[in-house]
Design a protein around this nucleic acid. Structure first.
Lengths: 139, 139
DNA sequence: CTGTATCCATGCTGATACTG
DNA sequence: CAGTATCAGCATGGATACAG
């Protein structure tokens, strides 16, 4: 099912402003969607995931992984070796979210500029820079 | 574009556990998706929206409406009458989220039971009832 | 009717440091 | 390598009461 060779994850796979508290669409908690996307091509190790998600601390990454595991989205496999190796992999339930994530990305590509324009316009009318409400700028 | 007559919104339009901090999919802030669904058939007044969303305080409802207005999802129209009347209506940008919301609902119908099963199984294995991670029960 | 004001509880998130 | 522990900060969300 996977490509012949699995590419390493790029450090700049995600835009620095992703997630920026911006996108009106959220899958799971703040980092869950990014993890799911990272696992799309096949199983990954903790340290592999840290590369594209270097803006998240290990604690936060662990929390995200545990929540996803608890909800049946990913599996966690410990290989009893030295050095220790742990692999995370999407379940079919986890894969079922990929379509939704793709739909969210498509919405953002198409409509996020309109949203940002509305926000700027509103800020001018009210003179307020406005905190983060429900949506904002995305990658 | 609207039906010939617009039905009043039902007080039990939403399941009491909606949103229960459960659903893995969130549109905007906690209440935004519910407001958007309420406005699907046409403009509604503040007090109309309070009926199905009686679990949210007026402050929270106002916050949600303001955020949606700021982001260009809805318009707010004040009718200078006595008694005062204010109507909220979806913009085309707001309507663009309806498809996404529908997709989220379909996902929940199809996969939420699996998620809850996984969560129960995990709770048994670990003996922990586990707080709200990223997902949970939905309407 | 349509909101505002104030105060408070919670929880997510993060920085920093340490361990099997 | 793969986490865990501890502490702290800020935003969100909510109860209650009041106002234009």
């Amino acid at each position: 099912m996977e490509p012949l060779s699995m590419e390493p994850l790029s450090p700049d796979m995600f835009h620095p402003a992703c997630p920026s508290g911006a996108m009106p669409i959220r899958i799971g908690d703040k980092w869950a969607a990014m993890v799911i996307v990272c696992l799309e091509q096949g199983p990954r190790r903790f340290s592999e995931l840290r590369v594209p998600m270097h803006v998240a601390t290990p604690k936060v990454l662990t929390q995200t992984l545990r929540a996803l595991e608890r909800d049946g989205m990913i599996t966690r496999t410990i290989h009893a070796e030295v050095p220790p190796r742990v692999e995370y992999e999407l379940t079919s339930l986890g894969r079922s979210l990929l379509d939704l994530i793709a739909a969210g990305r498509r919405w953002a590509d198409e409509h996020l500029p309109s949203l940002l324009a509305a926000r700027n316009s509103y800020a001018e009318r009210t003179g307020v820079v406005g905190g983060g409400g429900s949506v904002s700028t995305g990658p």
